[in-house]
Design a binder for these strands. Structure first.
Lengths: 148, 148
DNA sequence: CCCGAAAGTTAGGCATTGCTAACTTTGTTG
DNA sequence: CAACAAAGTTAGCAATGCCTAACTTTCGGG
């Protein structure tokens, strides 16, 4: 029995880490499309220079990454022109923004200052399961009710 | 003013993403030392095969990573022998375990099932600031008091 | 004690994500 | 409209983190 238990424990751990690695793969893409959606909403278009400024990386890095995102069907853009989201990209951006807002608002509701909450949400949003997100939502609703 | 505000916003965003990228750099190291500490506590030693089983990667990957961790002064190990933590590695493992437990317990206290809580904690623990961790601790204490 | 299986290592490959440096394109402005 | 600055691209480099395949070392049972 002990040996079987050990194997099970190991397998469960392995799946966990696999999930974290998977999350990392989509993380950058989510950050980019979320930011692109924001920029389009705020300024009408998303340019390489805006992204590099907000991401803290060079123009070259952004150009490179955008090409990968284009390959993956998340964005479209012609050379030297602005960047736009595809349907798929927009969906991903909306979902990411949703998660980000819930995590941020939830942290705020715990008393974390808004600036820190927003920063932490950036890292956390890619790693919360639906179950945890639901728990955050429930807690927010409960907090709203208490105020009412 | 508008232009200055824009720059400030961009800079704040950039710092945020920089922090997330930094977290990623230490993430793997933290996972390894945490796991090594667990294995030593449970079985007396940490072997490559145990790590690869629990991380869901090949032996070759573990050997490679361990060499990097050794280069960075977190572990020591002689070829074909078990892996041990340095002082620095032990400190990192303790801090990681602490954060992991707080995040997991906190999620559990929100009603997330323990299995999911543990899995999510794996991803989240590397991205919570001290401020957020404190908020989690406070919330746990409050929950404990309510039960008492 | 030796020999085979399990454990560990090495070599080589690949994608990602960042960089700098050198270049081209765009667009503004004098 | 020409020239220049800003934006964008390309090429080439490096570290990380994963893999497979081929090799070596260790260790326990016959």
């Amino acid at each position: 029995m002990t040996s079987t238990d050990d194997t099970d424990v190991a397998k469960r751990h392995a799946e966990r880490f696999q999930r974290v690695r998977d999350a990392h793969q989509t993380e950058l893409a989510e950050d980019y499309v979320e930011l692109i959606a924001d920029l389009i909403a705020q300024t009408g278009e998303a340019r390489v220079v805006d992204l590099s400024g907000r991401l803290g990386v060079t123009n070259a890095t952004v150009t490179n990454t955008i090409q990968r995102l284009q390959r993956d069907g998340l964005v479209v853009s012609k050379p030297y022109r602005a960047i736009f989201l595809t349907e798929k990209g927009r969906d991903m951006a909306l979902a990411a923004r949703d998660r980000h807002m819930i995590v941020r608002d939830f942290l705020c509701s715990l008393g974390v200052d808004p600036e820190t909450a927003d920063a932490d949400a950036e890292g956390i949003e890619h790693h919360v399961s639906e179950a945890t997100l639901d728990a955050f939502r429930r807690s927010l609703v409960a907090a709203a009710k208490r105020r009412a």
